[in-house]
């Protein structure tokens, strides 16, 4: 990626087919197994191992079981608080969503370059986050119309709407409703991409300034390096927060579908 000291901070997001699977396709759509798909697979395996390690089902849990149970309880409490008793049946979906995004974000931050592996954060692609967002939105629509029929449209007329605003409020509500999948997908994708670009740019500062000599290395490189350490911590926080926000917003939207306003 670095040619003559030039670093392209966007190069890390490039999707490349792997293992010679370029020609794979279904019904005319090319679906090569890319580095993005590889990291989805790694995320899936890591998540499977994590939950599997907590399946000992002991009465007095060990550390690992405690960790897994605290994650399921976290999702359970999230749904109980935001949706109520009806939220129990969404635990598998919200848990999968939350843990998939969380593991993807954290795995993408691991400093695996040290052992020669280039981590890829597929949550920094809106083509991936968009699928998750549309899936959540579709579930909200299906549940809403399934449970309430056309009464679901009353979602667009909140309680206490003044009669003379009845022509405006539903339009605003409709727009805010339709924006939900985009805000879900774009928030995650932008947050992950911005963090990775920032880290890449700062690391290029460190490398280039060091190459320009000891003076620039001290004046520019060292502060950039210290800033990188702080931003790494921040990015770990963001990885958790973005997964939480995605799960939280999905459960809030599910609440609309389950209970209307």
């Amino acid at each position: 990626m670095a040619e003559a000291g030039k670093v392209d901070p966007m190069h890390q997001f490039t999707i490349e087919p792997m293992f010679g699977t370029d020609h794979w396709e279904i019904a005319g759509y090319s679906i090569p197994f890319t580095n993005s798909a590889l990291w989805m697979a790694i995320t899936t395996v890591a998540l499977f191992l994590f939950v599997w390690g907590g399946m000992k089902r002991q009465l007095v849990p060990g550390r690992w079981q405690m960790a897994v149970e605290s994650m399921t309880s976290f999702v359970d409490n999230l749904l109980a608080a935001n949706v109520g008793p009806a939220g129990k049946k969404y635990v598998p979906y919200i848990f999968s969503l939350f843990m998939f995004i969380l593991f993807a974000n954290v795995l993408g931050l691991l400093p695996l370059m040290l052992v020669g592996v280039h981590p890829f954060t597929f949550t920094s692609h809106f083509s991936a986050t968009g699928v998750l967002a549309i899936m959540s939105f579709a579930i909200v629509l299906i549940v809403g119309f399934w449970r309430h029929g056309f009464h679901f449209f009353s979602l667009f007329v909140p309680h206490g709407t003044p009669l003379w605003l009845i022509w405006l409020i539903p339009v605003i509500e409709l727009v805010s409703f339709l924006v939900r999948p985009f805000s879900l997908a774009l928030r995650l994708f932008v947050a992950m991409m911005a963090g990775h670009v920032l880290l890449e740019v700062l690391s290029s500062f460190v490398i280039d300034s060091m190459n320009s000599g000891a003076l620039w290395g001290t004046v520019v490189g060292l502060p950039s390096f210290l800033l990188m350490i702080a931003i790494c911590a921040l990015e770990i926080l963001v990885a958790g927060i973005q997964a939480y926000v995605f799960a939280l917003l999905t459960s809030l939207y599910l609440n609309d579908a389950e209970n209307l306003h």
Binding site: I26, I31, F33, A37, F100, F122, A128
Partner: peptide, 11 residues
């Protein structure tokens, strides 16, 4: 197409 397919598959 690849992104959508693999996300759906693994998710």
């Amino acid at each position: 197409a690849s992104q959508i397919f693999w996300v759906l598959l693994f998710f």
